[in-house]
């Protein structure tokens, strides 16, 4: 008879395959779930919101730890690459995807970022995921693999609802592919109750690709809809226009109109709705892209 204190009141088996093929074999069985940093999964196990038969730990699979960047092929982030690795070990991230860099620095605590992965953040599919809005603005794609084969999908098509996505049983995120479309500036503006280690009340990623050239403004938001939300309508509106107060005003209103926030313990829907209008303007102003007439 086992004795002791266990936090997780549910029995399951644990596997740590060394190759992707083995892993995909295991995951094709019912009741098997993959883990990376397990920062979300262990929480759900404790709360008995997940009751898997078995857990397949993907961290021993060498190829999932790959990271590469080139202007031709963009950035490829293996599913097992941790956020702190992206922040500390790969200066290309900060240099070429500054808005994404800002956002992942705001995910959880330092300890968490030593385990948390971007693939995990995406796979968890929370509308509040901080890493997702900037990736949406950078037109990120996902390489998904399963025993049946692999496919590439646009990140914007991945989410289907809070905690829900298009992954099939046995399918995992293999890597995140972020095209390089030129230099970018921007801001990830996260409003939360406290300044560190909190989920966003609202998160707004505004990215400007090629700021000195074609100036392509893109915007995506967290915590204002059932899924992370990119607002193409607003982008289409502002494309090529001079950033007058009227244009920016309209841009912000379009962004706001596309949101459908709810009230929870982090904020009210009214406040979120209001901020979906305020923050796009604020970010453009703070980036020095337009001045308000006073």
């Amino acid at each position: 008879m086992e004795r002791g204190e266990y936090m997780i009141p549910h029995d399951f088996s644990y596997f740590r395959p060394a190759t992707l093929d083995e892993a995909l074999d295991m995951l094709s069985e019912d009741g098997m779930i993959p883990i990376m940093g397990s920062t979300d999964v262990v929480v759900k196990l404790r709360a008995r919101r997940l009751k898997p038969k078995g857990i397949v730990d993907l961290k021993a699979i060498e190829e999932l730890h790959n990271f590469s960047f080139s202007k031709e092929n963009g950035m490829v982030i293996g599913a097992a690459v941790t956020m702190n690795e992206l922040i500390e070990d790969h200066p290309e991230v900060k240099e070429n995807y500054p808005v994404f860099y800002q956002a992942i620095k705001k995910v959880g605590a330092y300890q968490t970022r030593n385990r948390a992965t971007v693939a995990g953040n995406i796979g968890n599919s929370s509308p509040a995921a901080d890493s997702v809005p900037p990736l949406l603005t950078y037109n990120a794609k996902l390489k998904l693999v399963s025993k049946e084969g692999e496919r590439e999908v646009e990140l914007k098509d991945f989410f289907t609802g809070p905690g829900k996505n298009i992954l099939k049983q046995g399918e995992i995120i293999h890597s995140i592919i972020v095209p390089y479309e030129g230099p970018s500036i921007g801001m990830y503006y996260k409003l939360s109750r406290i300044k560190a280690v909190d989920l966003s009340t609202i998160g707004v990623a505004l990215t400007v690709i090629d700021p000195d050239g074609k100036r392509d403004i893109r915007i995506a938001l967290a915590s204002v809809a059932p899924t992370p939300l990119r607002v193409f309508e607003a982008e289409d509106f502002i494309r090529g226009k001079e950033l007058t107060p009227e244009v920016v005003e309209e841009f912000a209103k379009i962004v706001q109109r596309n949101t459908s926030p709810i009230t929870d313990s982090r904020g009210t829907k009214e406040y979120r709705y209001e901020m979906a209008y305020v923050l796009p303007k604020k970010i453009l102003r703070e980036l020095g892209l337009y001045k308000e007439v006073s």
Binding site: R193, I194, K195, V197, L199, S265, R266
Partner: peptide, 28 residues
């Protein structure tokens, strides 16, 4: 400026973990 126990409309407490009940961190 932010701490409070909140409830849903049926009287179930919503802030029953440190994920939902926030206290000041070193950054605050």
């Amino acid at each position: 400026v932010f701490e409070q126990i909140t409830y849903d409309k049926d009287g179930r407490p919503l802030t029953i973990s440190f994920t939902d009940y926030k206290i000041p961190t070193i950054a605050d």
